[in-house]
Design a protein around this nucleic acid. Structure first.
Length: 296
RNA sequence: GGUGCCAUAGCUCAGUUGGUAGAGCAACGGACUGAAAAUCCGUGUGUCCCUAGUUCGAUUCUUGGUGGCACCA
């Protein structure tokens, strides 16, 4: 049976280094599950692997999209499965790494299928939300899909909008597409959650933020300023600098906000990954232990 | 050395006419099915500097310390 080694963890914990080391040791390739490193225009702020790392091991889903491309988890799931099929024809083991929990789960467990929503319908729903507020969306959802209405977080406008969009698109309740069933994959999956003491992680986040600024994050953000309303750029490291460029605060404040928002992002990642009982937690400095787990 | 002011949450501070305390920021916890580095929800975490008094009761008043700041020498 082929084996997929999934290495996840909070941002800045040191996933890239571990993944590259392990992939080199196994003589295989790396599949990224990072929803932002896919955009080729966002290199510095998303901490893509160094050129030497990319040269040492073939990487997939790094810089494969433009910020103007539409993309979603389901597309990732499909493309990733196809890619793995090709990789497993060459190698017994593949390595997946990245920090997007939803993406990693979509690949490992599958994600329910429903039709892509027409951009016009989506625009309409967004316009309704902006004009009428969340209460209007709630009433719509209650009518279109009472089951989901009962379960969904009614204060989270994105969740409600998504459900309403699908209802309008298909004429069927959004919840009718949800199976709550994990898909079986034709390969074994070993999940590793890299983690460090909080203080260590925060030190690394702070240091990495400084390194990004030295590497030209501000210039990168400036070049992307015209595209700041695209979803891809609703990203830590960019949105704070856009706010600075808009004169909302000074540069030092922007950098401090990047640090803070990165910390909060890391926390959310830990919450997501931590609840998966299949995760084996380990420290990134302990690659030997990882190799042991792999061989067992 | 003298005088004055200050000492309360991780930080900056408010407050208690004596009944063990609260804001902002930071932090902490959680949710998550095609926007996910997104989005949403929840939580004060405290020897009120120390000591001895007065008092039923002191973080608050008084004594003496300690530390910081300012001014005078």
């Amino acid at each position: 049976m082929h084996k997929l080694l999934v290495i996840v963890g909070p941002t800045a914990v040191g996933k890239t280094r571990v993944a590259v080391e392990v992939a080199k040791a196994l003589g295989t390739e790396i599949v990224s599950c990072d929803s932002r490193q896919m955009y080729r225009e966002m290199r510095i702020g998303t901490a893509v692997p160094e050129p030497e790392e990319l040269a040492a091991v073939p990487h997939h889903f790094i810089g494969n999209l433009s910020i103007r491309d539409y993309y979603n988890v389901s597309m990732f799931e499909q493309e990733c499965l196809q890619l793995l099929e090709r990789l497993f024809a060459k190698y017994p083991t593949a390595v997946m790494t990245g920090g997007s929990g939803l993406y990693a789960d979509a690949l490992c467990k599958g994600i329910d299928d429903f039709p892509t929503v027409d951009p016009e319908i989506r625009k309409t729903v967004i316009r309704q939300f902006e004009a009428e507020g969340i209460e209007y969306l709630r009433r719509q959802l209650k009518m279109l899909d009472p089951d989901h209405y009962a379960k969904v977080d009614l204060r989270n406008h994105k969740r409600i909008m998504k459900a309403v969009e699908v209802c309008l698109q298909t004429g069927k309740p959004y919840s009718s597409f949800l199976t709550a069933q994990e898909r079986k994959r034709p390969f074994d999956i070993v999940k590793i959650l890299l983690d460090r003491p909080r203080e260590e992680l925060f030190d690394r986040i702070n240091r990495r933020t400084d390194l990004m600024m030295e590497a030209g994050l501000l210039e990168e953000a400036q070049s992307l300023y015209p595209y700041r309303h695209l979803n891809a750029l609703n990203t830590v490291g960019y949105k704070e600098l856009f706010a600075y460029m808009d004169g909302l605060h000074d540069l030092d404040t922007a950098v401090e906000l990047i640090r803070r928002n990165t910390r909060r992002y890391a926390k959310r990642q830990l919450t997501w990954f931590g609840r998966d009982p299949e995760m084996k937690r380990m420290h990134p400095d302990n690659i030997d232990e990882l190799i042991t787990v792999l061989n067992s």
